[in-house]
Simulated scan of single mutants.
Amino acid sequence: MAGDKRVVRTDLWISDAFDERLKREPGVSLRVFPVRGNTAAAWDILSSAHVYHVSAAKDELPQEWFARADLLARCPDLLLVSSSGAGYDTVDVAACTAAGIAVVNQAGGNAVSVAEHTLGLMLGVSRRMLEGDRRMRREVGYSREDVMGHEIHGKTVGLVGIGHIGTRVAALARAFGMEVIATDPFLSPEEIARRGARAVSFQELLAQSDFVSLHCPRDASTLKMMNADTFARMKKGAIFITTARGGIHDETALVQALRSGHLAGAGLDVWDQEPPPLDHPLLAKDNVFATFHVAGVTHECRSNVAAISAEQIAGVLRGERPPRLVNPEVWPAFEQRRARILG
C-alpha cells in the first residue's frame, strides 16, 4: 500500500523467522519476487523496493538479481541492501555507496555453526575419519592402524582472521587443549589476545601452525592469499582448513601441495564453483574432507540469521543506524535519501 516501507526478497529458501519478524513491524510491507520464470513480475516488485534482502549465495542467485549498478538504477527508492549472510559476494558495495544505498550483512549470526563445522573438519581430517568411513564401506580385513590418525590436543591452530567466527573457533580449540595463534590486520595484538589467541605475523602463523584455518573475508587483499608459495611455507604435514570463501585459496596449488605430501590433508567447505564438479581433483583425494558451503547451514543458524536480518532491517526503517553496516561512509548520504524518500 502507499506509504508502506517496502521490503523485498527473493523466493529462494529462507527461514520463516524473517517473514514472521517483519510482519510484526508497523508500517512495513514484505513482497517476494521469483528469481526465475517471470522477469516482468519480478521487476514490478523489486523496482519499488526500499529494502532489498538479497541472497548471499553467488552460485544460487541468478546474476541478474545481484545488487549491482544496473539493478540499482532500476530501483530509484532503494535505501538498503541487506545480504542474507555474513558474506556479500552478490552485492557491489562501491556501486551502492555511490548511489547513497546502505549495505548490511549478518556477521556473527553464523558464528556458532561455522566454528563447530571448523572443528569438525579439523577432527575429521586429523583423525582420518572420512578415510575410515570409506574403507569400511568397501573393504574387510584391513588393519585399524592403516587409518590411524593424530590427536588435535597439544597441536597449534593458526587462525587467519579472528572476528566473530575466529573468536568462537579459538574458544573451542582451547577446550580441546590446542595452542591458538592468530593474525588479523584489523586488530591489535592486545585485542587478539583478548579474543583468545596469541598474535603473530602471517608468515609466523604459516610456519608454526599444525592447522591453518581461514576466517577472513574475500576481497582484493585476500584473493588467492593461499597459493603455491604460502602452502609451501606451511609446516610439512600440516592441515589446511577453510570455511571462509572460495577464491581465497588457489585450488590448483592446494592439489599440488597435497599430491607432493607437503600437506597432510585439507578440510574444505568453500569452493571456486559451488558445488564443485564431480571430477574435481580435490574430491578424488581421501585426505580431503569436502563439504558444500554448509558450515552455516544448520536449523539454528538459519533461524538466527533470518531473525537478526529482519531485526536489522526493521531498525533501519525506524531510523536507527544498523549494527552491521558494511559501508559506514555512506551514512550521511543515506540519511538524506531516507528523509527525502520516507519523510
Rank of each mutant, 00 (worst) to 15 (best):
A41Q: 04
V81S: 02
S83P: 05
A40H: 05
P62R: 15
E64F: 11
Y52A: 05
P76F: 03
L72A: 00
A49T: 01
L46S: 03
L46K: 02
A69W: 06
I45N: 03
R74P: 13
D77C: 06
G37E: 06
L72C: 00
D77Q: 13
S83N: 04
V54N: 04
S82K: 01
L79G: 03
V81P: 02
E60M: 12
L71Y: 04
S84I: 01
S48F: 00
L80F: 01
A57R: 13
S48W: 00
G85S: 15
A42R: 06
A67Q: 07
K58I: 12
L71S: 08
A56I: 02
H53I: 06
A42K: 07
D59R: 15
A56E: 11
E60D: 12
Y52M: 05
L79P: 02
D70K: 08
A49L: 03
S55V: 04
S47M: 00
N38L: 00
V54S: 05
L78K: 10
A40K: 09
L78M: 12
E64P: 10
D70L: 10
H50D: 02
G85C: 09
S82C: 13
R68M: 03
G85F: 09
C75Y: 09
L61C: 11
V81C: 05
W65G: 14
D70I: 12
S47P: 00
G85N: 09
G85L: 08
G37I: 07
E60S: 14
R74N: 15
V54L: 03
G37P: 10
V81N: 02
K58T: 09
A40I: 07
F66L: 11
D44I: 00
D59T: 15
D59K: 15
D70M: 12
A73R: 12
W65C: 10
K58A: 13
L71G: 06
F66M: 13
H50G: 01
R74C: 13
V51P: 04
L79E: 01
G37A: 09
A42M: 10
A57Q: 12
I45L: 05
I45A: 03
W65F: 15
R68Q: 06
V51L: 04
F66V: 13
L78G: 12
Q63M: 12
D77R: 14
I45E: 03
V51E: 03
K58G: 06
L78S: 12
S47C: 07
P62I: 14
L72D: 07
D70Y: 09
H53R: 12
E60R: 14
L71V: 14
A49G: 01
K58Y: 10
S47R: 03
A73E: 12
S82N: 06
A57D: 13
A67V: 09
K58E: 10
A49S: 06
R74D: 14
V54I: 11
D44L: 00
G37C: 07
K58F: 08
D59W: 15
A56C: 08
A49K: 01
L79H: 01
D59F: 15
V54K: 05
L78R: 09
S84R: 07
H53P: 03
H50M: 07
L71E: 07
